[in-house]
Amino acid sequence: MSGHGMLTVASPWPVGVTIDRLETALTGAGLLVFARIDHAGNAARAGMELRPTELLIFGHPKGGTPLMQDRQTSGIDLPVKALAWQDEAGQTWLTYNEARWLADRHGLGAGSEQALAAIESGLAGLVQQAVTP
């Protein structure tokens, strides 16, 4: 499933396990995890209900810095993020931004192509590791 610059893949595990698996894949590949946000937990603390939803913010300066050197505005979309969420039927999904969407959104030039390609292929592989039994 994709659209609006996002890619979404099904996960056979609950949201928390999906994020755990993604975090393991990311750190195993040498990426840094900057934050993990439990949106459902935060909603519960505010007295509101939300199906399981967790955001992982991660990356590496070697990947993101070239994009910001090209167009500093790309820093608003970096580090990279992935959202695991449960739909109304109980299915878990993992959604992340397409690297090409970043290029289009920020008008990144040819100098960013190598970094974008590395982010795109690397992220796709790590997401597959996280959701493949």
Results as ranks from 00 to 15, higher is better:
93 W>H: 13
38 D>M: 01
69 Q>Y: 00
82 A>P: 10
10 A>L: 15
59 G>A: 13
120 E>N: 09
126 L>E: 03
8 T>S: 08
72 Q>T: 11
84 A>S: 11
77 D>W: 07
62 K>N: 11
13 W>M: 08
28 G>S: 06
81 K>M: 15
46 A>H: 01
81 K>D: 04
19 I>R: 04
32 L>P: 01
97 N>L: 07
82 A>I: 05
4 H>R: 09
2 S>Y: 06
1 M>C: 05
1 M>Y: 07
75 G>L: 02
125 G>L: 14
72 Q>V: 15
28 G>F: 07
110 A>K: 14
90 G>H: 07
92 T>K: 08
97 N>I: 00
70 D>W: 00
45 R>I: 03
26 L>Y: 02
117 A>T: 14
132 T>F: 15
80 V>M: 15
78 L>M: 12
102 L>P: 00
51 R>T: 05
57 I>R: 12
91 Q>L: 04
130 A>I: 03
30 G>V: 09
13 W>T: 15
55 L>E: 13
96 Y>K: 05
17 V>P: 14
69 Q>M: 02
105 R>Y: 00
96 Y>E: 00
128 Q>P: 06
68 M>A: 03
113 E>K: 05
58 F>A: 06
87 D>Y: 10
15 V>A: 14
99 A>G: 10
10 A>E: 15
35 A>N: 12
98 E>V: 02
26 L>F: 05
19 I>E: 07
17 V>N: 11
79 P>V: 07
1 M>V: 04
114 Q>R: 12
53 T>V: 08
110 A>S: 15
70 D>I: 00
100 R>A: 14
56 L>M: 10
10 A>P: 13
71 R>L: 05
101 W>N: 03
39 H>I: 09
121 S>C: 06
15 V>T: 08
16 G>E: 14
83 L>N: 12
